[in-house]
Amino acid sequence: MTTTRAPATSRRTTRDPAEVPAGLPRWAYVPAAAGGLFVLLPLVALGTRVDWAGYWSLVTSESSRAALALSLQTATTSTLLCLILGVPMALVLARGRFPGRDLLRSLVLVPLVLPPVVGGIALLSAFGRRGLLGESMEVLGLQVAFSTTAVVLAQSFVALPFLVVSLEGALRTAGERYDVVAASLGASPTTVLRRVTLPLVWPGLVSGTVLAFARALGEFGATITFAGSLQGVTRTLPLEVYLQRETDPDAAVALSLLLVAVAVAVIGLTHRRGASR
């Protein structure tokens, strides 16, 4: 098993040293390196600003722990919600045949380009107490305002397009030929999805999920506009960082670094999982 799978894996991850890339001009290394520095330097600089002596106490303070726990909990829930809604959305957009599909595809992208604050205001208009659905939801006993649910809604709103876009792209690239063959062998559409389509687009699904989680974890603007900010309920790590900045810049820097570490860990972990699949 291991021996037979080795060639496929090595083909994907490493390059034969004898190969000469034909489409890589040498000058491209300069802006590429500058771009890399541009991304990495602020993160490294953040590390230099950290008060390492007091780091542990800063990130383990009650408010920090509450914010971290809330962030992980809400980002995980949002990611699950994104999967539940986003996988079928991507499927419908990639495979469905109905009028207005292209328009719908563009509309799904809107939260991606919208300033998060605008997203927050839009969510208020829909789910707020005086929003479009807010009143009927209140009748049903669903109170979204200032609740953790509101945080999850805000995060899902901004994270969903990331999942849909990357999965839809993967589905389009994979094409429908495998689906057709599987159906002809007697597999129902659900079986095709479970046993053929999703395994085929697995890397796209993983990267979309990671992107959605990372986006949910970093969500700030829509949350503060729509959900508010209360320790343990709605004050996620980014909101805590922004608030700590007012009085305790050291704590803000320490928490920022924590957020970076969590993001890097999540991306690193799932990337390895996805690649080994």
């Binding site: 205001i121 004050r235 922004y242």
Partner: peptide
């Protein structure tokens, strides 16, 4: 028992204006 401790006066006012608070 506030339901939210906002970042700024503007955020507080906004929540009141839109009727959330």
């Amino acid at each position: 028992h506030p339901v939210s401790e906002e970042q700024s006066v503007t955020d507080v006012l906004h929540k009141v204006v839109v009727g959330e608070a």
